[in-house]
Design a protein around this nucleic acid. Structure first.
Length: 548
DNA sequence: AAGCCAATAT
DNA sequence: GATATTGGCT
């Protein structure tokens, strides 16, 4: 081992990331020296080492002596991946892999084994400069995980638990973000009990499911809205875990909702003077809630965009029926059923909630299905699904969807994941969008960006793979938030990006034919509008990715 | 960034 | 009990 630094850079919040403790492992002394130089230029505290085994020893010996490890893949004594595995198991430091070739399988292997980045030699200064972000991100995630445990262990413990060796103000980013907020007045009143209070299990929020709400409405109707209070409702509802406060809160919302409805109603009546139903909408709503006109199968409260199902998703209530927007991409009829549709009045009251198949999460939430309702001869409404079509923002709508036949794709939904090329260190200047990924194009990319930063979000780790990913295919509207930026994972080359896309594809979108048709797995690049990027991309590398 | 939601304060 | 405000969340 050669310790590159005779002195230490100060490790303070102010100077961060100066003094970042980096261990570099490479059997090639030349590379080792070059990288050491570069890292030192970043004011990092570098330790170099040409044997993987030795590196492991160092790490074991000085357990908390490093913030991040950069390791070559090919080494005589121990495979870089092996090292990665050990590090992951024993100290859970962020590890960056590097190698001269960008062979797909290798990159994939690296990422799969939990590498947080994969650098291709020659490594650029910019890439090394950015490595601190992996450290911060990891810290932040750990913090989240610990908080996620909620209960039992109090946060005081948790805090010291993760701070081993870093509790010096260095990781201000991770620290300051999550513990900030408290209710006004809370702190002063309860300071003495702080430890107790912090450890208190967060009260779980009551979710007013359709069933629960129906019960609520029934009760209210039974007594009459004007005479009833939360206490009485609570008693009559007879739901053991519900509190008076819960009911009061819900009642408040319900009343607000009704009054809003009333206003709309008044407005409408003053316009047309005619009404389809002689029930006021208020009564109609209550009636509807109590009846079984609309049943929700597989209802999932989380997906319901509005608290009251009847407040709904109907967008257009004109003569011919409306369009129901489902918040999620759904494919089958069993998401909702309309029974006895003839009794549904035109003025409101057709409603449904989307049913999220968890799998579709990331993608489909941006691709709402639309259903148009029309009346047939018997006055029965039928629904017809209109498939939204994905459209590239930069007018690539002519692209074909290979492997998909007879797909009608009328409506257009914007869908343009973006890749940012600007280093995320420059958070003050919002990065420019350099690339867009059309999910449907089989063309090989024309060019390879020097560095790709793609919005990827770590999903919770499991024991075998410390990190797995899915992509969030959307553009962020705001780049102002520092910690949001930090969420982004750095991907140094297209291969790893594509690998992540593959993971994403197989993890997220196993079945839906429409989504598969998007060719997510064959993520390609186009619109290389940036002339700076001139490196030709080798199709060979790409082939390995088209395996599905 | 705005709006919704349930919880909490008044 | 009613209403206003808050903080979390999307």
């Amino acid at each position: 081992m050669v310790d590159g630094n005779e002195f230490s850079y100060p490790r303070t919040a102010e100077t961060f990331p100066h003094g970042l403790r980096v261990l570099v492992v490479d059997d090639d002394l030349t590379w080792l020296k070059i990288i050491e130089r570069m890292l030192m230029k970043c004011f990092y505290q570098v330790t170099i080492c040409c044997l993987a085994k030795e590196a492991l020893d160092i790490l074991r010996e000085r357990r908390d002596g490093f913030d991040i490890v950069i390791s070559d893949v090919n080494m005589p004594d121990m495979d870089g991946f092996k090292l990665l595995e050990y590090v992951g198991l024993e100290m859970d430091l962020p590890v960056i892999m590097m190698s001269v070739d960008g062979e797909t399988s290798r990159v994939m292997k690296g990422i799969q084994h939990g590498a947080c980045d994969y650098l291709l030699k020659p490594i650029r200064m910019k890439e090394l400069k950015n490595i601190w972000q992996h450290v911060v991100r990891k810290k932040k995630n750990e913090l989240k995980d610990i908080q996620g445990l909620k209960g039992l262990e109090n946060i005081q413990v948790a805090r010291s638990g993760i701070s081993n060796g870093f509790d010096d103000g260095y990781f201000f980013c991770a620290r300051s973000m999550d513990f900030g907020k408290k209710r006004k007045g809370y702190e002063s009143k309860h300071r003495d009990n702080e430890v107790v209070d912090l450890s208190a299990v967060k009260k779980s929020r009551v979710v007013w499911t359709v069933e629960l709400h129906q019960k609520f409405v029934k009760t209210v109707n039974h007594i009459g809205l004007d005479k009833i209070g939360p206490k009485k409702i609570l008693d009559l509802m007879n739901v053991p875990w519900l509190t008076r406060e819960n009911v009061a809160s819900h009642l408040q919302k319900y009343r607000l909702y009704l009054s809003r409805l009333q206003k709309e109603d008044d407005l409408k009546t003053s316009f047309s003077g005619t009404r389809q139903s002689d029930l006021s909408s208020k009564e109609q709503v209550a009636a509807d809630m109590g009846s079984d006109k609309i049943s929700f199968k597989k209802f999932d409260a989380d997906s319901c965009t509005s608290g009251f199902p009847e407040s709904s998703v109907i967008q257009n209530t004109s003569e011919s029926g409306g369009i129901i927007f489902l918040p999620m991409l759904t494919t089958t009829d069993d998401n909702f059923e309309i029974q006895n549709t003839s009794s549904i009045s035109e003025s409101n009251l057709i409603r449904t909630c989307g049913v999220p198949a968890a799998n579709y999460m990331a993608l489909s939430s941006f691709v709402p299905s639309q259903y148009s309702l029309s009346r047939n001869g018997q006055g029965i409404e039928t629904k017809q699904e209109i498939r939204p079509r994905l459209e590239m923002k930069n007018d690539l709508s002519h692209h074909q969807y290979p492997n998909v036949q007879n797909q009608t794709l009328p409506n257009i939904v914007q869908f343009a994941p973006t890749i940012y090329q600007t280093p995320i260190t420059e958070i003050d200047n919002p990065p420019h969008v350099e690339f867009k990924i059309p999910y449907s194009n089989r063309n090989l990319p024309k060019q390879s960006p020097e560095r790709v930063e793609y919005e990827l979000c770590p999903v919770q780790s499991d024991s075998s793979h410390r990190t797995c990913f899915y992509s969030e295919p959307y553009t962020r509207s705001s780049w102002s938030m520092k910690d949001e930026i930090l969420e982004h994972i750095l991907v140094s080359d297209i291969d790893s990006l594509n690998h992540l896309a593959c993971l994403n594809g197989s993890d997220l979108l196993p079945e839906d034919p429409f989504l598969t048709s998007l060719e997510l797995l064959n993520t390609d690049f186009c619109d290389c509008s940036n002339s700076e990027l001139s490196t030709d991309y080798s199709p060979d590398l790409y082939d390995g990715l088209l395996f599905m």
